[in-house]
């Protein structure tokens, strides 16, 4: 059966899928969903991993299949591509704001971030109180894409979505 939906409609539908580990942003805002193609009666959805070993990819693949099945598209292929390599620069400003509100310090532009991680800049803002007096506890946080920080003013620990 030919697909009667437009690509925009599919994108809109898939924008309802949250990232499994950061449920406040969806897979489009995060830059994981790259492309939707129709090949005959098959819907091909192209996604890219944030990190090569990201365990969320399998969950996202299943979520996509379930979502499309809901509107009657049964033949779905989810393709994983590595090029171009995912970068945090693809996260929209709106999504960065959502991350901050959720308690995760959003990534800076990758050029600024290098200095932050090398400890040469101290301009990482605490997402909870806004203080710039923060320090890194560990480069690796609760998931591969995050580092662990703490605020020296409000004393709360927080995650920082590190640049890639």
């Amino acid at each position: 059966m030919p697909i009667t939906f437009s690509k925009d409609e599919i994108f809109k539908l898939l924008s309802e899928i949250p990232d499994p580990e950061i449920p406040v942003i969806n897979i489009i805002e995060l830059g994981i969903l790259r492309e939707v193609k129709f090949i005959d009666d098959e819907c091909v959805v192209v996604i890219t991993p944030t990190y090569t070993g990201c365990p969320a990819m399998k969950v996202i693949e299943d979520d996509i299949k379930i979502k499309l099945k809901e509107i009657g598209i049964e033949k779905v292929k989810v393709e994983l591509v590595l090029t171009p390599a995912w970068t945090t620069d693809w996260i929209s400003d709106e999504a960065k704001e959502k991350l901050r509100a959720y308690g995760i310090a959003p990534p800076d532009h990758s050029s600024v971030d290098k200095k932050v991680l090398l400890g040469k800049a101290r301009d990482l803002k605490c997402p909870l109180c806004g203080s710039k007096r923060t320090e890194m506890i560990s480069q690796f946080g609760s998931t591969a894409c995050k580092a662990l920080y703490r605020c020296l003013d409000c004393k709360e620990p927080f995650d920082y979505f590190k640049c890639l």
Binding site: Y51, C54, S138, F140, A144, L148
Partner: peptide, 15 residues
């Protein structure tokens, strides 16, 4: 923190 760091790194390698 180190436990978490090493497992994060392990995950990258297996990926």
């Amino acid at each position: 923190e180190e436990d978490i760091a090493l497992i994060n790194i392990a995950l990258d390698f297996v990926g």
